[in-house]
Simulated assay, not measured.
Amino acid sequence: MSDDPEPAENISGGSADGGYADTFDADAPATRAEAVVDRLGDRYWQKSYGGRDAFECLVRTILSQNTSDVASQPAHDALMDRYGGREVRSTSNSASGERSEPRAEGDLAEALASADQPELAETISSAGLYNQKSERIIAIADRIVAEYGGEDAFDAFVREDDSGTVRDTLLDMTGVGPKTADCVLLFAGGRDGVFPVDTHVHRIARRIGLAPPDADHETVREHLERDVPGEKCGFGHTAMIQFGREYCSARKPDCLDDPEACPMADLCDQIGVDPTSGDVTDPAEAGVADD
């Protein structure tokens, strides 16, 4: 949507990932995690997600694995130009979740299932690990065509089936991990209570003290989904990523130079960050925060 406050280059969200601007109650948060998400929403955006085509979302998230948006976005665009076969990928721009534009003929899953692997690898080369990713994409596309008949039936499965069943099915696909599965559930399925954990979310949740310092990605996810209301998990994920890019980087968070420079200063335990010495370590190496 044209007035979407989220930058379109954010592969985890933005206008390309559907959804619509929304407003959520930020009064009297029940947990510190909710207070953090509320403040992030005030600073960046509050949105409800859903509306992406599930298979394209799955492919796009695979392309984003172990690389940056700058590298994976051109790979996604090149893949869609060569194999998409649809004039305009429709999105959901209203609370109803109805598609705003009809899709042209063609099936991306069928096209990729029959793709020549070296050609696909060349097409997505900017994303890195292109041989591995192309093999995985072709194998997943082949499975979706075999089991669902194509991307439309798979899309319906992701939107309508039990979320636990959808997540387990996605995790059973080679190359699909928890973050990828959760992104599909959120951006395509529009599911509440799904908080995908990427490297930014993993770092920030432990650094602030919203999860144990030694928590793995799945444990961080469990804590956030427990402590953040379901309807706020989606924008909590994308806004936390933006916060990590702008303020809370891995090696030099803004609080090192000025404790007041961080908008989360009063909510953060600074686990692994020592402004006095300038040392920054992984939270797992810095001690245990209150849960």
Rank of each mutant, 00 (worst) to 15 (best):
S2I: 11
D4L: 09
P5L: 13
E6C: 12
N10E: 10
N10M: 13
I11V: 15
S12W: 11
D17H: 09
D22G: 01
D22S: 15
F24C: 04
D25F: 05
P29K: 08
R32C: 10
E34C: 04
E34I: 02
V36W: 04
V37L: 01
D38S: 05
W45P: 00
Q46L: 01
S48H: 14
Y49D: 00
D53L: 08
E56M: 03
C57K: 09
V59L: 06
V59N: 02
R60G: 06
I62K: 05
L63W: 03
Q65A: 13
N66F: 10
D69F: 14
V70M: 06
S72H: 08
D77C: 01
Y83K: 06
G85H: 05
S96E: 12
G97L: 14
G97T: 14
E101Q: 12
G106V: 12
L112R: 10
E119L: 07
A121C: 06
E122S: 15
S126D: 08
S126L: 04
A127L: 05
Y130F: 12
Q132I: 14
K133F: 09
S134G: 12
R136F: 08
I137Q: 05
A139D: 15
A139H: 08
A139T: 14
V145W: 07
G149F: 14
E151W: 02
F154N: 01
A156C: 07
F157Q: 02
R159W: 07
E160P: 07
L171N: 03
T174A: 14
V176T: 01
P178A: 10
P178Y: 08
A181P: 00
D182Y: 00
L186V: 07
F187C: 03
F195Y: 14
D198S: 03
H200V: 03
V201T: 06
H202E: 07
R203D: 03
I208M: 08
L210I: 08
A211N: 04
E218K: 11
T219M: 07
E222I: 00
H223M: 10
D227P: 00
P229D: 01
P229S: 03
K232D: 01
C233A: 09
C233S: 03
G236S: 01
G244T: 09
R245S: 10
R251P: 00
K252M: 04
P253I: 06
E260F: 09
A261M: 05
C262R: 02
L267T: 13
Q270K: 14
G272M: 11
V273G: 07
T276L: 12
V280P: 08
E285Q: 15
D290H: 12
